[in-house]
């Protein structure tokens, strides 16, 4: 069975779904992602669904579950690149993907996560340290 690759980019895990999601794949992703968040200690997850033509109720619910799991593990999930047709279908189905944050594309998703880190005053600790050291006389 195919697995969805999870890439670590800086403080963010990037999941790019390129093929149509089977139910098994969605469940596998849910498990893998939880494990990776714990392993890497990342605080942001971006799921790119640009390649998805169809999001059915199961995949929609799985995305919701993944977001909830991530939140428990102290990571923010952002779903990016949803196609207009997919968005319309989800709304018509009455699925609002509760608890999921969204962004237009990966770039904006990254910005959103960075801003959130900023707001929480949780910019990457080593980065802040450097900053302060360079400022101090």
């Amino acid at each position: 069975m195919d697995r969805v690759p999870i890439l670590k980019i800086g403080p963010v895990l990037l999941v790019s779904i390129q093929v149509d999601m089977q139910d098994q794949m969605a469940l596998a992703l849910q498990e893998d992602l939880g494990q990776r968040i714990v392993d890497t200690g990342c605080r942001g997850v971006i799921i790119d669904i640009t390649g998805l033509d169809i999001v059915d109720s199961f995949v929609g619910r799985t995305l919701s579950t993944i977001a909830s799991i991530s939140r428990v593990l102290d990571a923010e999930t952002i779903v990016v690149g949803m196609r207009p047709a997919v968005a319309i279908t989800l709304v018509e189905l009455g699925l609002s993907l509760n608890g999921i944050r969204t962004a237009l594309n990966v770039e904006r998703g990254m910005e959103l996560l960075a801003r959130r880190a900023d707001e929480d005053d949780f910019a990457e600790p080593d980065f802040v340290d450097e900053h302060e050291i360079s400022k101090s006389p």
Binding site: I78, R83, A87, N105
Partner: peptide, 12 residues
């Protein structure tokens, strides 16, 4: 409302 919801799903 539907339009707004769909736009939100797309991140706008």
């Amino acid at each position: 409302l539907k339009t707004v919801m769909a736009a939100r799903l797309m991140g706008a």
